[in-house]
Amino acid sequence: MDLNRTPAQISRAMAEEARALNHRTLKADAFDNAPSVADTADGIAAVIQRLPQAIQQLEAGLQALADDNQIRLADRHPREVSAKDVHDAVFDVLWNLKEAREGLGRLNEHVRAATRRLSNMGGPWPEQDTDED
Rank of each mutant, 00 (worst) to 15 (best):
M1K: 06
A8V: 13
Q9T: 02
R12S: 04
M14Y: 03
M14W: 03
E17D: 02
T25F: 00
L26F: 13
D29E: 10
F31M: 05
F31V: 06
F31Y: 08
F31A: 06
D32Q: 12
D32V: 07
N33D: 11
N33I: 09
P35G: 09
P35S: 11
D39I: 05
A46K: 03
I48F: 04
P52V: 09
A54N: 04
A54E: 01
Q57M: 05
Q57S: 00
Q57W: 01
L58Y: 02
A66E: 01
D67I: 10
Q70Y: 12
L73Y: 07
E80A: 08
S82F: 05
K84A: 12
K84Y: 12
D88V: 13
D92R: 12
D92F: 12
V93R: 05
V93A: 11
L94Q: 07
W95I: 13
K98I: 09
R101W: 02
G103T: 00
L107A: 15
T115G: 01
R116V: 09
R117G: 06
N120S: 15
G122L: 15
P124V: 06
W125R: 14
W125Y: 14
E127F: 11
E127N: 10
Q128L: 12
Q128R: 12
T130P: 15
T130M: 11
E132V: 15
E132D: 15
